[in-house]
Amino acid sequence: MKKWIVVLFALLPSLVLAAGGNVHLDKANNDLTDQASLQNGAKLFMNYCFGCHSTQYQRYERIANDLGIPVELAKENLVFDPNAKIGDLMVNSMPQKQAAAWFGAAPPDLTLVARVRGVDWLYTYLRSFYADPSRPFGVNNITFPNVGMPHVLEELQGIPMPVYETEVVDGEEVQVIVGTKSNGRGELSEGEYDEAVRDLVNFLEYSGDPVKLERHALGWWVMGFLVIFSIIVVLLKKEYWRDVH
């Protein structure tokens, strides 16, 4: 019982992150078998997200082994805390109380966020920031209005500007934000940025369920065993009852 209570409280911060209105979600089309994508996603997460968001239910060594990254290379490029060991949980050094004062709420742990909200939501969310001078960090988000975090991937995407369309609401024409368009000053092109976000979301999906592929593969073996076992049971039943009938 205590274990389930711990898991529930671990999910609560991610549920807060997932709050938002109903919007069209783009398909992430993740591929957990794409090891290069997962490696790039891990790199992006550690460089752009880990400063604020931990993945405290994952270990550096597990990620290195699962993603095919040599341990020494992982220690050099993924473990930023000089006091951390390769077998440690991935917890950043940001003080929670100070983070809550800076951002209005402590940044949630992201280990399970892909399982809580879904990969399509994450993929759409990370591509829905737009410049909004009225907000504390100068950005807003279509998927998560009045978001409380900065656009940490801005140097990759460039400054995303809102794209408006005119819609009729209650008989009046209003300007509605329907998308964003980068100013083109980012390090990546639009297509490259979408791929980078997909890699990041791919990594977060893996992080939330590291044994997903193994479980699915095992499931096929179990189904095969049940089919064969059922055939044997039917044949045995017929053989057992043959003389009776």
Rank of each mutant, 00 (worst) to 15 (best):
T111S: 08
V152K: 03
G208C: 06
T180K: 06
P150Q: 05
E239Y: 10
P150K: 07
P107L: 03
A217H: 13
W220R: 09
S93W: 03
A18T: 12
L12D: 04
V7W: 07
V244D: 15
E187V: 05
F137Y: 12
Y164R: 14
F80L: 13
A106E: 14
E214L: 11
D170H: 08
I231P: 04
V147T: 09
P133F: 01
M161E: 14
G68T: 04
E154M: 12
K27M: 11
E195G: 04
G51A: 01
L112M: 12
K237R: 12
N146Y: 07
A196W: 02
T33H: 09
P82D: 11
I232R: 15
L17I: 10
N40F: 00
H216G: 14
S207Y: 00
Y125W: 09
Y48M: 01
H151F: 11
T124M: 03
K212F: 09
L126Y: 06
P107S: 06
P107W: 01
P133Q: 06
I69P: 03
A36Q: 13
Q56R: 13
H24R: 13
K212R: 14
T124G: 05
L11S: 10
P13L: 08
D199Y: 00
M1C: 08
S182G: 12
I69D: 00
F203W: 00
V201A: 00
P136Q: 02
A84C: 08
V139F: 14
P162C: 06
V197L: 02
K2T: 12
H24Y: 12
E165N: 11
D88R: 05
R62E: 13
T55C: 07
P150W: 01
G20R: 04
E155C: 05
E72V: 09
R198T: 10
G68M: 09
Y123E: 05
G219Y: 07
A131K: 10
Q35D: 06
